[in-house]
C-alpha cells in the first residue's frame, strides 16, 4: 500500500492562527482542506511538509449565502458537492456550478473544497508521479531536480493549471478573501495566479483563502466546457469558461478564460472583446475562438497528443460561447 510519510497534523482555532502557524514553520508546514489534491501528492512525495495545518473544520470557512447586494459568498471549506447542490448558484452562476460538478468524481467532490480547488497544484506528467518513478525518469525542476524535462532549454516550469473552477471564477469577476497572521485582504481571483508552474500563485504560502465572493451579476450568463478523456475522474486537459451579458440580442460584455493550457488560467481579453456589440453569429464565434486559441501552446506533459489539445482549444471556446449564449 502506498503510504504517507510521517507528519504532525494541527487543528487551529481560526484562519489567522492557521496562517500564523504556517508562517512560523516557514517551508515546513502546509495548509490542508479536503486533502484530495494534497494527500496523493504527499504519498508521491511531491511535497514533504512535516506539519499539516487543517482548515476544513473551521466554521468561519463554511459560509454559503447570498450577500445583501445580490452577490454570493462561498466559504473556502464548502465542498464542490455542496456547490453543485446550491440553487442560488445554479440560477445565477451556472458556469461555476457546472465547473464544480465536472471536477474529478462524485466521492472526491464530497471531500474536495472550493478553496482547495482554487489553489490546486499545477500538473505535469513528469511530476505527478511517485518518488520511485521520478527517480527512475530523472527528477525535474519542480521537485528534486534541476532541469525541466519537457522543455529543458530554459529553467522554467510549464506545469499546467488544472483547476476547473478558477477560470469560471475569473470570468465572473470573483474575489477571494485571504487571511494572514496580520489580517485579511481581498483580491480578484485573477490576480492569484502567475505564469510559473512552480510558483503558480501570488498568494503567500501561509495565507488562507477564507471565502470566495461573486459580485451581483444580473443578466450574466456563464458556462464551462471541459475536455478530458473520460466522463469522470479526469483532470481537465483543456477547458473554457465564458461569461456574457446579452441585451436585445447583442453582447454587451464578455469574458473568456481558459484552463488546462498554461501554468495559470489564461484570460483571453482581446478575443472576448471582439464579441462585444455583436449578436451570437456562428462565424463570429468561430473567429473569436480562433483568436483565443492562437496564442495557446500546450506541451507534451499532459494526456493525449499536445497537437490535438492545441486544436481543441478553438472547439472548447466555441462550445462554451454558444452554451453561455443559449
Amino acid at each position: 500500500m502506498l503510504r504517507l510519510k510521517p507528519f504532525r497534523y494541527l487543528r487551529p482555532a481560526g484562519a489567522e492562527e492557521a496562517a500564523a502557524i504556517v508562517a512560523e514553520f516557514d517551508g515546513e508546514a502546509m495548509l490542508v482542506a479536503g486533502g484530495t489534491d494534497l494527500v496523493p501528492k504527499l504519498k508521491r512525495r511531491q511535497m514533504e511538509p512535516s506539519i499539516l495545518v487543517g482548515i476544513s473544520h473551521l466554521e468561519e470557512l463554511r459560509s454559503l449565502r447570498s450577500t445583501p447586494e445580490g452577490g454570493m459568498e462561498i466559504g473556502a471549506a464548502i465542498t464542490l458537492a455542496e456547490v453543485t447542490r446550491n440553487k442560488d448558484l445554479e440560477m445565477h452562476w451556472p458556469g461555476y456550478v457546472q465547473a464544480a460538478s465536472l471536477v474529478s468524481s462524485p466521492p472526491l467532490r464530497n471531500l474536495g473544497t472550493i478553496g482547495g480547488n482554487l489553489m490546486v497544484d499545477t500538473r505535469c506528467n513528469y511530476y505527478d508521479m511517485t518518488y520511485e518513478w521520478r527517480q527512475a525518469a530523472g527528477f525535474c525542476l519542480k521537485k528534486d531536480g534541476d532541469a525541466c524535462r519537457v522543455a529543458p532549454a530554459r529553467p522554467h516550469c510549464w506545469a499546467v493549471s488544472s483547476s476547473d473552477t478558477a477560470p469560471v471564477a475569473i470570468a465572473l469577476d470573483a474575489t477571494a478573501v485571504l487571511a494572514g497572521p496580520e489580517g485579511r485582504r481581498e483580491v480578484p481571483v485573477e490576480s492569484l495566479y502567475q505564469d510559473d508552474g512552480i510558483h503558480y500563485t501570488t498568494k503567500q504560502p501561509y495565507e488562507v483563502v477564507t471565502s470566495l465572493h461573486f459580485p451581483p451579476r444580473a443578466g450574466w450568463r456563464s458556462s464551462y466546457v471541459k475536455l478530458r478523456r473520460r466522463g469522470s475522474i479526469d483532470f481537465p486537459i483543456g477547458g473554457a469558461a465564458v461569461a456574457l451579458v446579452i441585451e436585445g440580442g447583442r453582447i454587451i460584455d464578455s469574458r473568456i478564460v481558459l484552463s488546462g493550457v498554461a501554468s495559470h488560467p489564461v484570460v483571453a481579453v482581446e478575443a472576448a472583446s471582439y464579441l462585444v456589440g455583436h449578436s451570437l453569429d456562428p462565424e463570429l464565434v468561430a473567429e473569436v475562438a480562433d483568436h483565443a486559441a492562437k496564442p495557446v501552446k500546450p506541451l507534451d506533459n499532459a494526456d493525449l497528443a499536445y497537437t490535438w489539445r492545441k486544436r481543441m482549444v478553438k472547439w472548447l471556446v466555441t462550445q462554451a460561447v454558444l452554451e453561455a449564449g443559449k
Binding site: 500500500m1 502506498l2 503510504r3 497534523y9 490542508v32 479536503g34 486533502g35 484530495t36 494527500v39 496523493p40 504519498k43 508521491r44 499539516l52 487543517g54 458537492a81 474529478s104 468524481s105 462524485p106 466521492p107 472526491l108 464530497n110 471531500l111 475522474i233
Partner: peptide, 23 residues
C-alpha cells in the same frame, strides 16, 4: 491509494468519500 479508483469508498456522515485520502 491515490483517490483514483474508488475501491476504498466508505460513507462519512452518509456521504461517499475515499478512505485512502481521509486523515
Amino acid at each position: 491509494e491515490l483517490g483514483e479508483c474508488g475501491a476504498c469508498t466508505v460513507l462519512v456522515d452518509g456521504l461517499p468519500q475515499l478512505s485512502c485520502l481521509l486523515l
